[in-house]
């Protein structure tokens, strides 16, 4: 486990790793209330970024502002050469195809089979007609089967999504995101509804996908311990602002306490074992 945090392949600022995402002074206000304020950071190719922060800090808002599921109030986002905030409707679809997203509640269509849910990830590439009729090419179906197999779901290919366990549902969510051929994967607390064992499986999958397929990840998490174990880099937000951006090993107990403020009580136990040795 320790070995992994030390791997840190994408050293910030390293010249051979390309920048994939650049967020500049991003702000989202709901009326008077500021959900995120003045957020700037960059993400490199294949980098595994974990976003932490107490609930209400603005994690969901930040993630959704990147693919404009939420329209930011001001600031800029550049992704893979596109200026996200300036995209028209067509450009936005192109952007979203390149960014996969997974969710706390999986957001699958319960009544449809695993393979149908996975193929939904291809709808971004379809015209109104082929998309509405659900016409998928043989290649796309084969890719879906590969991903299903890769995520260990082959026995469940034709099962309805509502018959799966939470961990299996999240793997379907991952497959649906991967079939988009994304460059970046956004995860909004993808393991928050899972038991520890299923959570570990999902995190292991995400980590190996990031490294072998060179897909960058921004995953928001509640558990600091898990964040420190898997992250190449940790971004911490509090009250809409970035309060830490750096390597997990430099994140001290005091900083964590700072980030979580009054909620820190139970989290200290979580981080405890790492800091003891």
């Amino acid at each position: 486990m320790h070995a992994r945090t030390l791997e840190a392949p994408a050293t910030v600022g390293s010249s051979e790793v390309r920048e994939l995402l650049k967020v500049e002074r991003l702000t989202k206000k709901y009326g008077e209330h500021t959900a995120i304020a003045d957020i700037s950071f960059t993400v490199h190719e294949g980098e595994f970024v974990v976003l932490i922060g107490p609930s209400g800090a603005g994690k969901s808002t930040l993630l959704r502002s990147i693919n404009r599921m939420i329209e930011p109030t001001s600031g800029h986002v550049w992704f893979d050469g596109m200026q996200v905030d300036a995209l028209d409707k067509k450009g936005l679809r192109e952007l979203r195809r390149k960014i996969g997203m997974i969710f706390q509640h999986y957001n699958l269509v319960d009544r449809l089979s695993v393979i149908e849910n996975v193929l939904h990830g291809r709808l971004g590439y379809k015209s109104i007609l082929t998309g509405s009729l659900g016409m998928y090419q043989a290649q796309e179906k084969e890719r879906a089967m590969e991903l299903i197999t890769m995520l260990g779901l082959e026995e469940h290919t034709y099962k309805r999504a509502d018959q799966l366990s939470g961990g299996q549902k999240q793997r379907v969510g991952i497959a649906r995101a991967l079939i988009q051929n994304p460059r970046l994967l956004l995860g909004d607390e993808p393991i928050a509804s899972l038991d520890p064992k299923a959570a570990k499986t999902i995190m292991d999958y995400l980590k190996s996908i990031a490294h072998t397929l060179n897909i960058s990840m921004i995953i928001s998490l509640h558990q600091v311990q898990v964040a420190l174990t898997y992250a190449d880099r940790v971004l911490a937000v509090r009250q809409g602002r970035i309060v830490y951006d750096g390597l997990p090993r430099d994140l001290s107990l005091e900083r964590v306490r700072d980030i979580y403020g009054a909620d820190a009580g139970d989290l200290i136990i979580d981080t405890g074992d790492r800091h003891v040795d």
């Binding site: 089979s113 393979i115 193929l119 659900g134 043989a138 084969e142 590969e146 991903l147 072998t212």
Partner: peptide, 19 residues
């Protein structure tokens, strides 16, 4: 899976989507 994908695509078996 990544390296196999080309081979699989060539096999051309038809996959049912809507049972």
């Amino acid at each position: 899976i990544v390296t196999q994908s080309g081979r699989l695509a060539a096999s051309g078996r038809s996959i049912k989507v809507k049972p």
